[in-house]
Design a protein around this nucleic acid. Structure first.
Lengths: 231, 231
DNA sequence: TTGTATTTGTACGTATGTATG
DNA sequence: CCATACATACGTACAAATACA
């Protein structure tokens, strides 16, 4: 009875000061003016800079803190912890999920990403994929990290930010779990040849083939994790 | 040099009052004590209820407001707008995305969801799917809404909350776009027979068949939207 | 070890704008 | 037009935690 009286009109004409400060700070972070790890100016200084009160600054800061983009350290300062609220929110959700569920989500995204990359890749994408794969072959030690970068490059080749951003968050969690489980054990990706095959399929723009290869790659990672669990 | 002085120890012993209030409020919303659409108590009342200051309450409220779970209406009150911060964050990200990209994400999720539902469905899941499909056949008018509920039931049958929660957000955006584009036009889902086929495939636990059917269903929706765009 | 400055955390009070009846 | 209730904003003060000399 109260919400839709005259009409279901939105009237965001009025934007609170705290929200203005919040968006200003968020854009400072997104633009890189405040980088991850930086300590931002003290509340009093920000209040002077924005010409608003201490409490207004505090409201904006607390919002960013609660959503995980900033961290306040009493007696020290306030530090930038992340640069993307979407990634933070998805990451927090994944943290309270089981690994098998995350791996299923990864497979869902990765299969379609492989297909789309094969269909939509440009010549520039191919260059980047070749470079990423070269890094994989070069270093044996940091296999997992380079492996992730190659997959991220494939995701970028879909030219679909929704899919690639989502995938990046998911694959980061998978990577962290892989690192925990296979600490000393050489990663040594037996999937290395499969990566060459994947690049070849994407180059030929063969979607079905790309998907089949990705399935094998993900299966490889999955049994690695599963094996580490059992043994 | 500053963050890891003695050790990289976490010390979550100290939890700010505002954060305690925030989590308390968030659990009130998640638990359903504060439902979507409800007006929550005034700030002064909350301050008394939680035995904290007006500003502390305000900090917690503003955080929930800024992340989209609450909405403050001056001279009126504060209302609950959403019940899940993860869903809100994903939804906000989708709002600034193009429909084709959202549809690609939907296809990625839906294909794997169909496979997993076929593999993992229980007899209880089958019951729910049959009921949801019955509703689809019953009403012709609200085709889109019931259609969405059936797909949501399929997602639930995967028993993977990550996938199903993500899918629910995505499909809601697709639905809203469908409704906008096909307002008066009867939805009349030519995909209706396909839904029967999908249920049959899930019943037989045939993953490949379920995936193939889902691809056809999504294609149907996609051309509906595309056609509406062109004409 | 001690003390001091800095910074965040908590709290109260006050004034103003805005919607409702 | 007035009274009420609520949100918004500011100012101030002090407490607690940390850094650094």
């Amino acid at each position: 009875m109260k919400q839709s009286k005259t009409m279901e009109l939105k009237k965001p004409v009025r934007v609170s000061l705290a929200r203005q400060v919040l968006t200003a700070m968020e854009s400072m972070i997104r633009s890189g003016k405040w980088k991850v790890g930086d300590r931002i100016p003290a509340e009093a200084e920000l209040a002077r800079a924005f010409s608003v009160s201490h409490n207004t600054i505090r409201e904006a800061l607390q919002s960013l803190i609660h959503m995980g983009m900033l961290e306040a350290r009493p007696g020290d300062g306030t530090y930038v912890m992340a640069s993307d609220r979407f990634a933070v929110a998805v990451s927090n959700r994944l943290k309270e999920s089981e690994l098998p569920q995350i791996l299923e989500a990864r497979l869902a995204l990765e299969k379609e990403i492989a297909r789309l990359a094969a269909v939509k890749r440009t010549d520039e994408d191919l260059k980047e994929l070749e470079n990423a794969l070269k890094d994989c072959h070069g270093r044996v030690r940091q296999g997992i990290e380079d492996d992730m970068l190659f997959h991220a490059a494939v995701a970028r080749a879909t030219h679909n930010p929704v899919l690639s951003e989502l995938y990046n968050v998911v694959i980061r969690h998978v990577q962290e779990n892989l690192e925990k489980l296979l600490q000393e054990k050489q990663y040594d990706s037996g999937a290395m040849k499969l990566h060459d095959d994947l690049l070849a399929a994407i180059r030929k723009q063969e979607a079905d083939e790309a998907e089949n290869i990705i399935v094998k790659i993900v299966e490889f990672d999955t049994v690695s994790i599963g094996g580490a669990f059992i043994s």
